[in-house]
Design a protein around this nucleic acid. Structure first.
Lengths: 181, 181
DNA sequence: AGTGCCATGTAAGAAGTTACATGATTGA
DNA sequence: TCAATCATGTAACTTCTTACATGGCACT
């Protein structure tokens, strides 16, 4: 039984950069990294407990304000070791990611033309909005960050997300043009 | 609690085209449709039982050869009704699909340059192979099939998959060029 | 006689989502 | 004082993967 444990390595990777709380980790998954991996606190907190039990991370309690305790987690030597082993692994390409919208379009010959066009236009608008949001984020960089910096990863996923959104938009626009033809 | 039940609708959609066995359905998920939705027999057979209990499908037993029984499933009126309702639903864009390779590259500043390049080149090769495989499939069509035909869906997902692979290849090639620079 | 495909199931566990639950801090 | 955000957890359930299990059919 070889399960992926991807969340484990995502968390270890983040803690390998700097100590973070569970809440911080959840926040990271909403930023740039969230373009290609996400998890919410209900997955994160149990996973942190697991990693702690495995000796891959430790925490120290910090006090915010008067009483609020927060757990600041750091990676251990063993944690770094396991993270780096995973990082260098050359795994076979993953199966295609699932996509409900395209599944729907696969069956689109059972829709009336008006509904089809409406769904397509709405989808297109959402992807255009996302693209413009990503492009706004991209303005942060006036040049490509150095390969050795932590910022490089952020730049890379942003670049990948922009290319992906453009491709999706192209597919939708082709399709819409054909529907109108 | 609003779960997606996407497998339910994928199966209903296939049965809406024509009667199929569980085995046939699994085969469909390995063909064109598999570019955007998959499931194996261990998900399919239990789901068929569920749909049967819900009255959305029925089956008749067929005999292959001497004794081998197979269950040929068909959609019911109620099943068609639920499928068409789902089909026309305008759902908000899904969260970004997860991608382990990009997660790894997000942390690639902790790799040595040789490993990084090796992983990238291997990934590129795999995507190029997949693209050429998809393009071979595309040769089946000398023109875009009519919007009302079942074949249109196959064409559409194939076209989408090709655009997606090209985008991924572009991202990888940019990245590789920058690493070599 | 053997291999690859056809054909149908179940079990155990990992991974992910939604809801339930609680309380502190910061800033307007 | 009110709202947004910070902060941490659990419960219940769906969804997906891997492994276990069995046996017939078609072709060489």
């Amino acid at each position: 039984m070889n399960y992926m444990r991807t969340l484990k390595y995502a968390i270890l990777g983040l803690l390998n950069r700097e100590p973070l709380t569970g809440y911080d980790i959840a926040r990271e998954f909403k930023k740039d990294l969230g373009e290609f991996w996400t998890a919410t606190h209900s997955q994160i907190y149990p996973e942190l407990k697991k990693l702690l039990a495995e000796g891959l991370i430790v925490f120290e309690v910090q006090i915010s304000g008067e009483v609020l305790e927060k757990k600041l987690y750091s990676i251990t030597g063993q944690g770094q070791k396991e993270f780096l082993t995973w990082l260098k692994k050359d795994e076979p390409m993953e199966p295609t990611p699932k996509d409900i919208f395209r599944l729907r379009m696969y069956f689109s010959n059972y829709m009336d033309s008006a509904t089809r066009l409406q769904l397509l236009e709405h989808q297109l608008q959402q992807h255009k909005d996302r693209l413009s949001h990503l492009q706004t984020n991209m303005l942060r960089y006036d040049s490509v960050p150095p390969l050795e910096s932590d910022t490089f990863g952020d730049y890379l996923v942003l670049d990948g997300a922009i290319i992906r959104e453009k491709a999706t938009i192209q597919w939708l626009e082709n399709f819409i043009a054909y529907c109108r033809k």
